[in-house]
Amino acid sequence: MGQNCTACLKGVPAEGKNIQDMDLSKRPIGKESLQVIKEDERENIETPLQSDGGDKRYRLYTGNPNMQMSHKAREIEATLPPVDLSFEGISAYCIEDGSIYSGQFNENYEKSGKGIEIAKDGSKYVGSFKNNLRDGIGRLITAEGSLYEGEFSKGFFEGNGKLCYDKFKYEGSFINNLQHGKGKEIWNDGSCFEGMYVKGLKNGLGKFIWNDGSWYKGGFMNNKLEGHGVYCWVNGKKYEGLWADNKMNGFGVFTWKDGRRYDGNFINDRKHGKGQFKWPNGKIYMGNWEYGKQHGYGEVTYYDLKKGLLVTKKGIWEKGVRKEWVKG
């Protein structure tokens, strides 16, 4: 008589698919993914950036800057449309941090305006800069092959953007490299989530659809089902009620495709406390439950065909088994 749904809710939504740390710059990069071409000292000479002979000097880079990109980053870039920054002919320079930069500078010889930066780790950024930081609209391909296109602020993902990372895609709002605000993520296996995020975690209202067609719509807290929500299984089962720590906890209504229905309290996905169970033939049990089974005092109401009326019996149950009827 149990709902047999505990296994469906083990772990966090979609088998733990969530994004807790979007700071891609801190992720380890395998040495095998980098193909850095060493500079030829005969081809790279110190050259003032401007004709006024300013103190700021960078080495002129005369090789192919794209060869400093990691192999994976070059593979990803080959699948993307080119970004036209309309400054052909501007030289590429080796910057103190080990990156290669081609683009616009301000009066302090800081990267400002439009430019292309290939970092020492093999990643590539194309877009806007301000005071040496990525700021404005841009495209970042990391050394391990992740792709972000959207808004930057002071070097961070900030505002609206699209992120393709490992086996999922996310489109929505970011703050400080983390999903924050409204967004949507789609996984390669067909699972998807659309809703609210706070600092990289699902928080607030949202809807998660699993790849088997099951879905949940309601509250989330730190990537877990929390608060009021509706969960529908592909086999026709449905639960609407309170959730806590990814499980049915509190009052809710569970229905089956064949017409069975339970209205009452749950603890960790099990009927527990006061509740009413109704069968398709109209029979009703109302009473106490303990960890999914009738336990303690309860009343059964059913239609007696011989008498032609509703009959209510009172009894005592123990772990799902009726022990005795109670008179009176």
Rank of each mutant, 00 (worst) to 15 (best):
M1I: 04
M1W: 11
M1G: 12
Q3H: 14
N4E: 10
L9A: 02
G16T: 08
I19E: 04
L24R: 00
K26F: 08
R27Y: 08
P28G: 02
I37G: 09
E39W: 13
P48M: 04
S51C: 07
D52Q: 07
G63I: 04
N64V: 09
N64P: 00
N66Y: 14
S70V: 09
H71E: 11
R74Y: 01
A78M: 06
P82Y: 01
V83E: 07
F87I: 14
E88C: 05
G89L: 13
G89D: 10
S91D: 15
S91K: 15
C94A: 04
C94G: 00
E96P: 12
D97V: 01
D97Q: 03
S102N: 05
S102L: 00
G103T: 14
G103S: 05
G103D: 08
Q104H: 14
Y109V: 12
K111M: 14
S112A: 11
G115S: 03
S123D: 06
V126M: 07
S128N: 12
S128V: 06
N132C: 10
L133Q: 13
L140M: 13
L140P: 02
L147K: 08
F152Q: 13
F152T: 00
F156W: 01
F157C: 03
G159T: 09
L163E: 09
Y170G: 05
L178M: 15
H180R: 09
K182G: 03
K182N: 14
N188W: 09
D189A: 10
S191Y: 05
E194M: 06
G195C: 09
Y197R: 08
K199E: 11
N203H: 05
G204Q: 04
G206R: 04
F208A: 11
S214M: 09
G218W: 01
G218P: 08
N223E: 10
L225R: 15
L225N: 07
G227S: 09
H228F: 15
V230A: 07
C232R: 12
K238N: 03
L242N: 01
G252K: 01
V253G: 04
W256F: 11
W256P: 00
D258P: 00
I267T: 11
R270H: 02
K271Q: 12
G275W: 01
F277T: 11
W279D: 02
E290P: 00
G296S: 08
G298W: 07
G298D: 08
D304N: 12
K306I: 02
K306S: 15
K313F: 03
I316Y: 14
E318V: 15
G320T: 06
